[in-house]
Every structure is written in structure tokens, then in C-alpha cells.
């Protein structure tokens, strides 16, 4: 089957983008801190933050695409995602990180670190409704 086009680049990672936290506060994307995500998830009725540890980073099926394997949540469930190498993830206590931080900085002007095996990223799951 023909290769699917890479996912489009979202606009909100561009430096200066305005992000609204769960309490209504507005921040620029480059100013977000780990606490902003944690507090927003605490307020949220349907979203829960999970810790997702990077277990493996491989070249994807096409140039510019990476395959990242995470261990998600307390049960360390294995999840693989295919992303553009410039796609930034938020690492606990560190901030925005991608497989190719130079390219992330070039495209989004967003300060970014190198995503590495062992990094713990912020991810979301839906809360179980009781």
C-alpha cells in the first residue's frame, strides 16, 4: 500500500503561540513548565497525566520520520508512535524535547532539547468514568 503522508505539523508549537491552561491562564508555548501540565490535569475532569518513558528511538519507514517506543503509565504498557523527527514532546523537569532539536528550533523557533532513551515524557489518558 502507498506510504501515508507524514502527519501535518501542528501550529501550536511555534514560539509565541498562546496556550490556555485549565484554570484559564494564558502562557506562551515556550514558557510552559511541568507544573502547568500537572495542575491543568488536576483541574480537568476527564484528563489524566501519565508518565511515558522513552524505551527506544528508531528511524521510521520514511526519511524525517522516527519510531518512538514508550512505556506508558504505572503498568508500563508498550506504545509505539510514528512522528516527524521535529515533533516535540514535553519531558518532565526538562521541557520541550525532540528527536531532532535543531530542526524543531528551525521550524518552530522553539527552544528544544534532544529526546533520549530514558526520558520521561508527559502524556495524557482519559480518566475512567465511575
Amino acid at each position: 500500500s502507498p506510504a501515508a503522508p507524514p502527519p501535518a505539523l501542528p501550529p501550536y508549537f511555534t514560539k509565541g503561540s498562546i496556550i490556555q491552561l485549565a484554570d484559564g491562564e494564558l502562557k506562551k508555548v515556550e514558557e510552559l513548565r511541568t507544573e502547568d501540565f500537572i495542575q491543568s490535569a488536576e483541574i480537568s475532569s476527564d484528563l489524566k497525566i501519565d508518565s511515558s518513558t522513552v524505551e527506544r528511538i528508531e528511524d521510521g519507514p520514511r526519511p524525517g520520520i522516527a519510531l518512538i517506543q514508550f512505556a506508558v503509565g504505572e503498568h508500563r504498557a508498550q506504545v509505539s508512535v510514528e512522528v516527524r523527527v521535529e515533533y516535540p514532546f514535553f519531558v518532565f523537569g526538562q521541557g520541550w524535547s525532540s528527536c531532532c532539536p535543531d530542526r524543531t528550533s528551525q521550524l518552530f523557533d522553539l527552544p528544544c532539547s534532544k529526546l533520549s532513551v530514558g526520558d520521561v515524557c508527559i502524556s495524557l489518558t482519559l480518566r475512567e468514568l465511575k
Binding site: 501542528p10 501550529p11 501550536y12 508549537f13 503561540s17 498562546i18 496556550i19 490556555q20 491552561l21 485549565a22 494564558l26 508555548v29 510552559l32 502547568d36 501540565f37 491543568s40 480537568s44 484528563l47 497525566i49 501519565d50 511515558s52 514508550f70 506508558v72 503509565g73 503498568h75 504498557a77 508498550q78 506504545v79 508512535v81 514532546f89 514535553f90 515524557c121 508527559i122 502524556s123 495524557l124 489518558t125 482519559l126
Partner: peptide
Amino acid sequence: NVEPRSVAVFPWHSLVPFLAPSQPD
């Protein structure tokens, strides 16, 4: 004159990936 410009505001959760594992049936 400065023309008013609408600025996009994105919700915080747009920036965080959902990495929920698939649930076994």
C-alpha cells in the same frame, strides 16, 4: 490605525500526546 487581529488560543491538552495503550477486548 492599528487593525484588530484575532490571535489563536490553543488549549493546553493540544500539546500533549494521548499515549493510551489499546485495551484488550
